[in-house]
Write a protein that binds this DNA or RNA. Sequence first.
DNA 1: TGCGGTGGGTTTTTT
DNA 2: ACCCACCGCA
Length: 771
Amino acid sequence: MIGLNEMQAKAASHTDGPLLILAGAGSGKTRVLTHRIANLIQNKNIAPYSILAITFTNKAAQEMRERIGTLIGESVAKDMWISTFHSMCVRILRRYAQKIGYSKSFTIYDTQDQKTLIKETFKALNINDKDYPNIMGYISNNKNQMILPKQALVTDNHKEKIMANIYDKYQDKLYENNAMDFDDLLVNVCILFSTNPDILVYYQHKFKYILVDEYQDTNGVQYELVKQLANAHHNLCVVGDDDQSIYGWRGADIRNILDFERDFENTVVIKLEQNYRSTKNILTAANKVVAHNKGRKPKALWTSNDIGDNIKVMQVKNEYRESDAIVDIILRNNYEYKDCAILYRTNAQSRVIEEKMIHNDIPYRLLGGLRFYERKEIKDLIAYLRAISNSQDNVAIKRIINVPKRGIGQATIEKLDNYAVNMNLFDTINYCRQMDILGGAISSKIAKFLDLIIALRDIAKYNDVKLLLEKVLELTQYISYVKITEPDDAEDRIENIQELISKAANYMNTAPEPSLDNFLEEIALVADIDNYDQQSNSVVLMTLHSAKGLEFPVVFMPGLEEGLFPSYMSTVDNGDNDKLEEERRLAYVGITRAREHLYILYANERTLYGQVRANLRSRFLDELPSEVIDFEDATHSAASSFNKKANSFSSNSFNKPSNSKSTFSANSFNAKSSSNKSSFSATTKTAGFSQTNASSFSSAINSNNKPKSSNPPINFSVGDTVKHKLFGLGKVTEVIISTDDLLLTVAFESGQLKKLSTKYAKLQKIVSPSA
DNA sequence: TGCGGTGGGTTTTTT
DNA sequence: ACCCACCGCA
């Protein structure tokens, strides 16, 4: 096969029987998978609809479909099932939900909804929730291992028995609400298959060839599903890398890949060990680190790429200097923003980095943290849609029954709840109104709410999702509610609402069969990473977990400190080293994301959980081979001065850091975009101002690197017309000269007034009045 | 019912 | 340091 190496070609041309592809990082597995599918369709005459490919994210699914599309034609590729486990299960369940007692408009509950429902469960059982802090994990673990409530109840352990009771009751409540949590989607398909063997047989015969990507991250239910589906044809191809198994905490079972050969007879094993991604130095470092793990299949990843630069390890004073250093490196080396990724262990680390990005006018995108669909205003509106779509969704109804305020308080809701023994809340409300059970005043308020929902349901019958949303806003006066209750955040929240509407519009234009249920489903199953647009020219910030499957020319890994990375959680229990080894794999994943340049940083002290702590450097650093490392002690570099100055601009309404309490506007994700084409992709944000003191430039580093090309000194004067690639055209209204920089105030045509440093902001002079 | 203040608990990763 | 639940008051 063209463009494939021997092993890749072997894997791609394999057809029948179980196949295990052990694909090292950057070994071109997606290429292999796509070629394999193309081969099945073109040369083996396999119908596209009999192929099932399971990926880890929707984004990966989409990409695979596109790549296969370019190989064999889009119209052919579209008939294949390429999706995540969760999407696949929803697709099956929408068709057969009735068989397991659900209606096909069932709702998918996210983590927040789960929490709400579990809280209710505690209340119903009269148990103090504080005594069972880890109940969510308990329930999820059970589901991941296919342990149903009735089975969990069989235990002598008192505490476990109570937890099983909560699990049981919680499950009942989900059922009453016609709702499923994430794990249920998988479990319920298993239940469907075991109670309806004919349906299983149907899918077994439908899917003649099954492929599973990222197999090392599958959990017990997923294993079970795959095994059952593949049981008729045994044409199961799994791809994975035990060294990249990083979801053990979520129930992923590394044994699934380690024991594959044992579980599936006559397995052919193919190893892809040539890395096409990284330089020799980067690969050497990655190999050395992961070699410290005991529980792994031996392998030797190699590359014929150049040796490349050494890996730079930098010691800095604290997290602020760390961010300075990153910014400095990006600017000095003139790296393209889109080539750079900053990968960290915890989301909390993003904030300081974001601040520096903003201060230095570097466009960035942030993945993770508070997701778009988890924001209050978005959840509220979605709750309306859910209440319209699924009348049994009590969690949704309770969320909005008094939002905006309708004078229906906690007391009333409890009263209703008490009536609702065998009835859902909606029917109870209806009943109470008819029977005039509640007091007159309350009764009329409840009646109004009921009429609202009924009216909206009627609208939903004849209109699309976008219009429905607009009607919800109109009839609830939600916008003015936001303005009144949260004047400070109203602007951001309204922007988010508009974004939601444009997403709905986009959905209506692109979905093959648009419907309210389907829209809600898409919303429930999107991950941040799914919206990550690699084309936009901005630095990307994300966790190491989110970075799985991606690659970047330049990678920064800040926070390589004991307690942070590896997380202290992984070092506490000494029973086994499983958790620590998973952290090490995470380090391996991080290192292998880099193509050409890798920068690893650690700070002497860092504010963590509210306290300044001095952490030791991460043990993983000591596992790096010294011959490929350039170490730099930047501990004593001068503090930069722009922190304080920058703060004086912080009332600027544009771009506050994401974790700030007052706003989420800079949680760069989706907040600003409103065009329908790009509305499903992340939005680039830039800073509202730049640093005011150029001397901070060299603050964090005593680097030997000379900037490849610094911006040529252009003279700007008041009255000049300038162009900025993000803000557009503007007029210079003020010029401040510092030692080696010009600081301009520019009034842009968009109305924005910005302070920009000519050194960093790429400003183009268009017209000079004196010329 | 709605508010503001306080005190206690939590702080890894996410489909 | 931040979040959230709870309490007391208007």
